[in-house]
């Protein structure tokens, strides 16, 4: 017997909401990146879990693999940008970055 699929979905939803909260709460860009990674993993978990509903094809798992690739790219570009901002401002706290005002 396998645990219910829905439990995985609950976990994914929890990770997603936590990730979103992390992005909103933290005042540090690297922390925000961690939150975004959490959100991406939530989606992946969903994809893999749903794949059990449709075992005929492996679409979900394939998608999850591509998401991991994209996450790598995003992390690389993101960190490069963070480091560059860091060089300009000597901080990675978004609130202290205020050249642009709305």
């Amino acid at each position: 017997m396998m645990p219910s699929l829905q439990h995985l979905l609950y976990l994914a939803a929890f990770l997603f909401c936590t990730g979103l909260a992390v992005v909103m709460v933290k005042r540090n860009t690297i922390m925000m990146l961690l939150g975004i990674e959490l959100m991406l993993n939530a989606s992946n978990l969903n994809l893999v879990a749903f794949n059990r509903l449709y075992p005929a094809s492996l679409d979900g798992q394939m998608f999850a693999l591509f998401v991991i690739i994209v996450a790598v790219c995003e992390a690389a570009v993101g960190l490069a940008i963070v480091l560059r901002v860091y060089q300009h401002y000597q901080t990675s706290v978004p609130d202290e970055i205020s050249e642009l005002k709305g």
Binding site: F14, L20, K26, D95
Partner: peptide, 18 residues
Amino acid sequence: QVGHTNIFAAVLSGILLF
């Protein structure tokens, strides 16, 4: 160390979304 902002709003919206 990292500071936190609008904890209440974030946690509340997180809980609601969940």
